[in-house]
Computed example of a mutant assay.
Amino acid sequence: MFQRLFRRRPAWLEPLFYVALGLGLYLSGWHTELLGRAQQGLLSTGLWQPKLPEPAIAPLSTYPSADYSLLLLPLNNPGPAVPFSALRGKVIVLNIWASWCPPCIAEMPSLARLAGRTNPDSVAFVLLSLDQNPEKARRFLARRGITVPAYSPGLPLPAAYQTGGIPATFLISPAGQIIGSHEGMAEYDTPEMLGLLHRWQNQKQ
Rank of each mutant, 00 (worst) to 15 (best):
K90G: 05
I92N: 02
L94Y: 13
P102Q: 01
P103H: 04
L70V: 00
P80N: 12
G24F: 01
N77S: 15
P109R: 12
W97A: 02
A98N: 14
G29A: 04
S85C: 06
P64F: 09
L23H: 06
A81R: 03
P109T: 07
L111M: 07
N76Y: 10
V93I: 15
W30V: 15
T45D: 09
P109E: 12
V82T: 03
K90D: 11
W97V: 00
L87Y: 08
H31P: 05
L23V: 08
L35N: 09
C101V: 13
N95C: 04
W100S: 06
E33F: 08
P109W: 06
L42H: 13
G24A: 08
S61P: 07
P64R: 12
L71D: 08
L34R: 06
L72P: 00
P59Y: 15
P83W: 00
Q49E: 03
I105C: 02
A98G: 14
I57G: 05
L23T: 14
P80F: 07
Y26T: 10
A66T: 10
C101A: 13
M108Q: 04
D67M: 00
P64K: 06
L43F: 10
P78T: 14
A66R: 14
A66K: 09
T62P: 03
P55G: 07
N76Q: 07
G41F: 03
W97C: 01
W30G: 03
L27Y: 00
H31S: 07
L47M: 11
I105L: 13
R88Y: 03
Y26G: 04
P64V: 08
P74K: 09
T32Y: 10
P64L: 14
K90S: 12
L87M: 11
L52V: 09
Y63D: 09
S69W: 00
Y68P: 10
P74F: 07
P59T: 03
A81Q: 12
L34F: 10
A66C: 15
N95D: 07
G89N: 02
P83F: 00
A38R: 07
G41Q: 06
L35H: 03
P83A: 02
I105G: 01
I57M: 14
A66L: 11
P83H: 06
I57E: 15
S65N: 06
A98I: 05
P74Q: 03
T45E: 08
L35C: 05
R37D: 12
L23G: 14
Q40L: 08
L72G: 01
V82Q: 14
A106M: 02
W97D: 08
W97S: 01
L73N: 12
A81M: 06
V93S: 13
N77A: 14
L87K: 09
A81E: 14
S99T: 13
A56S: 11
L25S: 04
L25T: 05
P102V: 01
T45V: 01
P80R: 05
L35G: 04
A112T: 12
L70Y: 00
P78G: 02
P64C: 10
L42C: 10
H31D: 11
Y26H: 15
W48C: 05
G24Q: 00
P53G: 08
P50K: 08
P53S: 05
L25Q: 04
Y26A: 11
E54G: 15
L87Q: 12
E107N: 02
C104E: 01
L43W: 02
L94W: 07
I92T: 04
S69D: 10
F84P: 15
A58W: 10
G89Q: 05
L94K: 15
H31M: 05
